[in-house]
Each structure stands twice: as C-alpha cells, then as structure tokens.
Design a protein around this nucleic acid. Structure first.
Lengths: 147, 147
DNA sequence: TATTGTTATACTCTATAACTATA
DNA sequence: TATAGTTATAGAGTATAACAATA
C-alpha cells in the first residue's frame, strides 16, 4: 500500500498571494471564534449586528445593512431572527416613520455581555502572538487595506 | 425632514477587535477580487482548487478538501462544476483505486493563466500600499495568525 | 420620485447521511 | 474496519424583484 500524504500539498504561487494569506488568517480566527462561542448561538455577523445596535440605539435596518455590507432583505431576516430570540425590539422611528428604530432588550444586553467575555479570551489568544508594537503595526496595516 | 447619516455608525468596541479588523480587510480584498475577475467566472475557492491541481497534478479530491478546509461532498460538487466547464479531468489513481487523480485540461491551464494576470493587477493594488519591509512584516504577521 | 421596510422566491454554498468500491 | 468517492437531501445565507408606507 502506497502512502499518500494529504497534508503536504504544494500551494504553489497561491502561498504568495496576499489575498490568500489574508484569507487563511481570517479562516483561522473564524474557526477559533466559533469554538470560543461554543453553546452560545452566535455567528460573527448577527453578533456584530447586535453590538452595533448596542452602540447605536435606535439605529435603522438600512444603516446596519450599509455598515455591514449587505442589503435590506438580508438584514431584515437577520433582525427577524434576533427579534424571535428576544434580543431586540423594533419601534417605528418618530423622525422618519419609514424606519424601524432598533433597540436591545435586557436579554440582548446580557447576550452581548456573555459573548464579549468569550471574545476577550478568544482575542487574547491571537493578540498574545504579538508584541504591543507589532500589534499596533498589524492593526494599522489591516486598516490600510480596508480603507 | 431630519437628516440621518447612515455611514457614520459608531462601531463601538467592535472596531478594536482584531477579528473584526481582519474581517474588514478580507472583505475589502474580496470585493476587489470579484471586480478584478469581472467576466471571468471564478470565485476564490474554485480558482484556488484549480491552482492547487495545477501545482499538484494527480491530486485527490480528499487532499484538496483537507487543504482548503472543506469536506468531501463539498469538494465533489466544486470539482463537478469545474469538470463541466472542461477545466479538469478525473482519472482513477493507479496507486489507490479509490482515489480520483485530478489533472488540468489545456483549457484549465489557460483559465489559470488568464486569471493569474488579473490577480496580479489586483494584488499589486494592495501590495503598493506597503513598503517592501512593511509587506514582509505583514505577511509574517498573517502567517503567525494562521499557524 | 426616492427610500425603508417587507415578503416571496430562488440560488449558492455547505454539511449530513447513506451507499459503493476499494484498501 | 477504514477511506475515497458519490448521491440525495436539507439547511443557512444571500440576493432579486415586487409591493406598501412614508418622505
């Protein structure tokens, strides 16, 4: 029986692409994020949505969609699910009655607090890979790519 | 009529999370990747699959799945589509007759060549944001996160 | 006329489970 | 027994189009 080593594929020029390296790093952090969340049923986007409502009380669905780079209908479903879980409430905006003003419920606030605790442990795992000076540089580099 | 500025949401603690910063950077490069590909119908994963076959002729589907962090069934469908487009061929491995040995067709080789040209322009856009020393550091930092 | 929310629908991606052939 | 491939199926996430209410 001939041995075939699956884990030693030659990545070729793929390994030198910045986009691919970035994707690998993001995948690694995402895997650990999922593991850190464990029983807490939160994916990155819905949690980010909830946190944005926390720091922007009364925010509209369209504003969330624009900030997170998705569309109205997609955000609609995400907000639906979070509402079904009792984590937020919709009220009509008084300033613009087309808009929903989103607010966290106490359960929503608690959910964020719980999630944040796990995220801190998760983040620390990666932050500890760098010196403070390196970390500052890394954040600045990533910001440069995003801008 | 009251003005509400959608693009000025307070990101709160979200903005300080390394995972979020990484995600934003990845999203930015992904958006530009899609734009760079244009009419060439290639998403990141299928193209990576094709490139891996290019640098590992005769590779099996399971090896590709493991390397790209997915499962057999998902890789199966991806390979199916690439085969339907005439970009690769399956032949049974002689060493282990359970395995498919995947090879690029001439069309597949050409497709990679075309895609690579576009990727170079796309990559340059981001690489040019950094000095050579910075870029070296960035790659090393990302590698540290992936490992 | 344009925008926000809403609904219905469809499409893609991915995963799960069960089967087959080979080892 | 375990592994590679295959198939069918289901679920999640996302996007498109159309409509109602409001601006």
């Amino acid at each position: 029986m001939e041995e075939i080593d699956d884990d030693r594929l030659d990545l070729g020029d793929l390994s030198e692409l910045l986009g691919f390296q970035l994707r690998l790093a993001q995948a690694a952090m995402h895997r650990d994020f999922v593991e850190a969340m464990g029983d807490l049923d939160f994916k990155q986007r819905p949690l980010a949505t909830l946190m944005l409502i926390g720091s922007n009380p009364g925010v509209s669905q369209i504003a969330l969609a624009n900030t997170l780079g998705t569309d109205r209908a997609t955000m609609m479903m995400m907000v639906d699910k979070l509402q079904d879980r009792g984590l937020l409430i919709r009220t009509r905006s008084t300033a613009d009655r087309r808009r929903q003003a989103l607010h966290l419920t106490p359960a929503g606030t608690k959910a964020i607090r719980d999630a944040r605790r796990r995220i801190q442990t998760h983040e620390k795992k990666f932050i500890d890979l760098f010196t403070p000076a390196e970390l500052k540089k890394l954040r600045e580099f990533l910001q440069r790519i995003s801008a």
